[in-house]
């Protein structure tokens, strides 16, 4: 209760929606994040890029407390994630997450996947939820697939169901953890378009991605991580053309 600096109600939209300060995270003896700081304003879309094993996914998973952290602070709308008394329910209502492996519930249809959490967790009215779910299905362009089971959908379709499922909770921030990494090249685009539309509508998005083209076009800010630290960051224009750090340059030269 009395953790220092906790002002859950004092947050205003002019302050950063997500603010990470000096974040340290270890798995046993292995330090994965060594003091990461970044800020995301409301409506911003940021991309985190970097080589495998640089801690990108760990970073994003810390934001909705799927991983605990050892040191530092993460605030989501003023809510301190690194607070032992954190109300995880409150945090997860604010933060939606989409995973690389979709992680849909295979025993439920697409529409049931979308409707489940609002009904059980938020105790919302069933008819209202159904209406909202319908509009989300339209938004991710899956009309006609409502009653399909995840096993009957393609990877790209499953991932769009997963996005709709996260959106059904009306989150303020969306986290995307390499959501296109497991997809066929042809279906990558349909998922990216969905995310782009979200970002353009003003959803605050944090993406871990390898899609440089997407980052270039959609991101407001790009962070490059390597070996647990943010090596370089900037808006796409300067980031891709005027990278200073040798590690960033090397990475970009391999990928672009």
């Amino acid at each position: 209760m009395a953790s220092p600096g906790k002002k859950a109600n004092g947050w205003t939209p002019k302050q950063p929606m997500v603010s990470i300060k000096d974040l340290h995270k270890s798995f046993g003896d292995l330090e994965v994040l060594k003091g990461v700081s970044l800020e995301v304003m409301k409506g911003e879309c940021i991309c985190i890029i970097g080589p495998s094993g640089s801690g990108k996914s760990t970073l994003i998973r810390c934001v909705n407390a799927l991983n605990d952290i050892q040191k530092g602070s993460i605030k989501v709308e003023g809510l301190e994630v690194n607070d032992p008394n954190l109300d995880k329910l409150e945090l997860r209502k604010k933060v939606g997450m989409v995973f690389q492996q979709y992680n849909l519930f295979p025993h439920k249809t697409a529409i049931e996947n979308i409707m489940m959490a609002p009904i059980t967790v938020l105790k919302q009215d069933k008819d209202e939820v159904a209406k909202h779910a319908k509009s989300l299905v339209r938004k991710v362009r899956l009309e006609g697939k409502e009653d399909s089971y995840p096993g009957e959908l393609s990877g790209g379709q499953q991932q769009r169901v997963a996005i709709a499922r996260a959106l059904a909770m009306n989150p303020d921030v969306m986290l995307f953890d390499e959501v296109t990494a497991a997809l066929d090249p042809e279906t990558v685009k349909e998922v990216l378009v969905t995310i782009q539309e979200l970002a353009e509508e003003g959803m605050t998005c944090i993406l871990v991605t390898h899609e440089m083209g997407f980052a270039k076009e959609v991101a407001d800010h790009i962070y490059f991580t390597d070996r647990g630290v943010i090596v370089e960051h900037g808006p796409p224009k300067t980031f891709f053309k005027k990278a200073k750090d040798p590690r960033t340059k090397e990475f970009l030269s391999q990928i672009l």
Binding site: L66, L89, N103, V121
Partner: peptide, 18 residues
């Protein structure tokens, strides 16, 4: 079951019992 099932449920704010 893949741990992803637990994780996605957790990120949707389901309690452990749910």
């Amino acid at each position: 079951l893949p741990t992803g099932q637990w994780e996605s449920a957790e990120s949707l704010a389901f309690s452990r019992r749910q």
